[in-house]
Computed example of a mutant assay.
Amino acid sequence: MALQSLHIRRLRVPRKTTAVTSGRQRAQSFLIVATLLYRASHLAVGVLAVVRRPTDQPLPYVGIVLALALSGLTYGAALRRGRFDARHIWADVVVTGCVLPLALIAWGGVSTPPALGWAMLLGGSASAAAAIALDRLHAVTVVALLLLSHFIGYQAVGASSAVIAGHLNSLVSSAVMTWVFRWYLLRQGSLLDEANARALAAEAHKARYAERLEHHRALHDTVLATLTTLAAGSVDANAPEVRARCAREAAYLRRLIQQTADEVQHREIGTALEEAVGSVEGLQLRVTAQYHRLPQVPPAVAAALGDAVREALNNVRRHAGTGHAYLTATADPDGRGGALVTVVDRGPGFDPENCTPGLGLRGSVHARMAEVGGRATVDSAPGEGVRVELRWPG
């Protein structure tokens, strides 16, 4: 007979995701925004200069449009990627910083320093971006190219020595100050990352210590207490209740030894399942449990899985008639970061078509899983036992 399944509709739970970036990444993003604002101020001056000085020469209009387009490409890509593309920087430097001023003098009808000033300003923001995006040698090369082309340009329009010296000084200063800011911010970002790494390591050490302490207390209250009592000779080691207790504690030790490092770090689900197993073992139900690569789940999900497993094991104790259940918990094989837990017994089973799920199965298994966005299914057939599968997300 084909196995039948009882399904509960999944309730969707909204989730929030938070992007985590390093200190160096945040510093780099800040530098991109800062140089973008610097370039925006120069572009604003350029647009106003071109609009306020009508001319029959089309080149100034073409030049400001080209500068806007290159700026959009350079800084738009940098904002998306979190870093500058060196090819965009070189294109901006050559076209906007070097070629545009000389082209305006040669073919754009520009013959005075004030008329050329807006194009020269763009060289300052070009040198600043180069100091961030390029290595030291290439950044120095960019500054040298800008100095040479701007010196030639201002000489061609008859600028005074003071104007030339002041402008060339601003080109160098923009690059130097930006490079200093970059060095300082990236250094602070690295120090912040190192401090965060130390804090995480300390928290992990603290968590491992707390885990060991919890295990020590559990062993003290269970296995050690039993061994101490047996060594004192105050009880009959062959008494059925003593042997049953020893079997339960041996099973607990076996599961403890089988835990992996991942399960220790993300133990919420393991703790909930262990509590469920312990509660039914005290009622004379033997549970063979296997845990493998337990995933990290929210506390509410771990609690729901533990409660659902407890009810499923209670059903085995009440109805299966075997006194033995099998529990398996692992990461979701679909690779979605979820959990898959199964409870199986080898009892007489039942026919799902002729059996209505009881209150415990509906309220303690299906409903609990649905409330946290999971799903429970029950497979059974006469003579084939019962398999309860708990999956999160559903």
Rank of each mutant, 00 (worst) to 15 (best):
L294D: 02
A210H: 11
E249F: 15
L79Y: 10
D193T: 02
A19V: 14
V365L: 04
A86C: 07
P240A: 09
W107H: 13
L146G: 01
S234M: 02
F30S: 08
A78I: 03
A312F: 05
V45S: 07
A325V: 11
D85M: 09
G63L: 12
T222N: 15
N315V: 06
L11D: 08
M120G: 05
R254F: 04
A308Y: 00
G323Q: 05
L224S: 11
A67E: 08
G383T: 03
L48K: 08
A303Y: 00
A276E: 08
H42P: 00
V95T: 11
T342H: 01
E249T: 09
G46A: 15
I32W: 04
G270R: 00
A247F: 09
A331T: 15
L36W: 14
S170N: 02
D332F: 00
E194M: 11
Y61C: 03
R12V: 11
F151Y: 05
R267H: 11
G358A: 11
A247P: 02
V163T: 15
A320S: 13
V157P: 01
D307R: 13
E311Y: 13
A304P: 02
H220L: 14
N196S: 10
N238G: 04
S380E: 12
A103V: 00
V93R: 08
V157F: 07
D85Y: 07
N169V: 02
H205I: 02
H138A: 15
G63V: 12
R9S: 11
V386Q: 04
S279C: 06
L100D: 13
V301H: 03
G349S: 05
G23L: 05
V180H: 14
S380R: 09
A77T: 13
V316F: 10
P352I: 03
R182H: 14
V235H: 08
V99P: 01
L213E: 12
A34Q: 14
T222Y: 09
P348M: 08
T271C: 04
G374P: 10
G323N: 07
T21I: 13
A126W: 06
W392S: 01
Q188R: 10
A119C: 07
L148W: 12
E268I: 00
G385S: 12
D332G: 03
E249R: 11
